[in-house]
Amino acid sequence: MKNLKIKKLLAVAVAGILTVGLVACGSSNSDSAKSDTASGSDAASGSYRTLDEIKEDGTINIGVFSDKNPFGYVDENGEYQGYDVYFANRLAKDLGVKVNFVSTEAANRIEYLQTGKVDVILANFTVTEERAQEVDFALPYMNVALGVVSREDNVIKSLDNWNKDDSIIVISGTTAETYLTENYPDIPLQKFDSYATAKEAFQNGTSVAWANDNTEVIAFALQNKGYTVGISELGNKDTIAPAVTKGNDSLREWINSEIETLGQENFFHKDYEETLVDTYGTDYEDSLVVEGGKTE
């Protein structure tokens, strides 16, 4: 009898343990399901703040370059400057909020929008069909094409009949990388994440040429002796525009309205004259600037 009672007590204890275990497992699975559901919901709606949420917070996060003078860079006082930064400051002012600049690299621009790290990208972002599938572009504020800069003692005027032992420098995540990969797959590419490292490598002679936005290569040639732009337009002419997270219609529509309004005061020509004229002079102004989102 004594052994029988002990067996019954053990059976009850084991059953209790199993019950607790099952409840615990059930609770864990339930929490996990809730978490997965929430994550799925967030992914579906996009990680972004609406226009009203930005206003309520009082700060807008704008992604800009910190090493691409004269479009986005940090000066000797640690302040952000440049064509894109000038525009960003005006956006924040007219929205009635402070601006928080977030330094980005070309390859991170889409990721920063999709993860909610920034509300807007103003970092020489060329509009392409592929990118438009992942982000939403507002109206353009600049024209751009691809260009190729090389040394004066070996000017590259064509990419046809390329020497397979030579390479071209590109920035990862740029239209130059995409264009060359698709149209000149046999040309070796040296890829860099930042403009600073690309410039340093080019100046050190690691490649015979550097392909990038024509605005960038023209600026480089003007600022550095011994270099020239042998190809000023490569591929299609494109535009640069602000980008927001896919589906953030309230912010995109406000930016569109703002660009149209700014066009009435020739804001982007003033921006050019304040930030770009020292680099490009006045000859390029009308061909580069887009006022009010109108490219024609």
Rank of each mutant, 00 (worst) to 15 (best):
E130I: 00
L222K: 15
I169F: 15
N161S: 12
I218K: 09
K237P: 07
E134L: 13
N248I: 08
A221L: 01
N183I: 06
S232L: 15
A219D: 12
T228K: 09
I231H: 02
V120Y: 08
E233M: 03
W254D: 05
A123Q: 03
Y195N: 12
P188W: 01
G235W: 05
V217E: 07
D153R: 08
K157S: 12
F220N: 12
I218G: 11
T197S: 09
T239V: 15
G147D: 08
G235F: 01
A198R: 09
S150H: 05
E152N: 15
F202A: 13
D238I: 01
A221W: 00
D165M: 03
D160L: 14
N124Q: 14
K225W: 09
D165I: 07
T178M: 01
T197W: 02
D119Q: 08
D249I: 07
I121E: 03
D213A: 12
Y112N: 01
R131C: 15
A196C: 00
F125H: 14
E253R: 07
E233D: 01
S194V: 10
P242W: 03
K246I: 04
E129D: 11
A196N: 06
D238H: 12
P185V: 00
N236P: 01
K237V: 12
V217I: 04
E233G: 02
K225G: 12
F202R: 10
I171D: 06
A145T: 09
E233H: 09
F125M: 11
Y112R: 02
L139A: 07
T128N: 10
E200L: 10
W210Y: 13
N236G: 00
T228H: 05
I156Q: 01
A219K: 14
T174V: 08
V217Q: 15
T215D: 07
P188T: 11
D213S: 13
G247W: 06
A219N: 10
I110Y: 05
Y227W: 08
Q223W: 00
N204E: 13
L113S: 08
I156A: 04
S167M: 07
T115V: 12
I171L: 11
N124D: 07
A201Q: 04
K225A: 06
V208Y: 01
G116N: 02
T181D: 10
A132N: 11
V208R: 03
V144Q: 05
T128S: 11
A241S: 11
E233V: 01
Y179W: 11
N154W: 07
T126A: 14
V144P: 00
Y184R: 04
A132P: 04
A123M: 07
P188M: 06
W162Y: 14
V155G: 00
Q133K: 15
A196M: 03
T178K: 02
Y195K: 03
Q114L: 14
V149T: 11
Y195C: 05
F137V: 10
G226Y: 04
N248K: 05
E233S: 13
G235P: 04
Y184W: 06
A241M: 04
D193Y: 13
V217A: 11
E111Y: 10
E216L: 06
T175R: 04
E111F: 12
L122H: 04
N212R: 00
K164E: 14
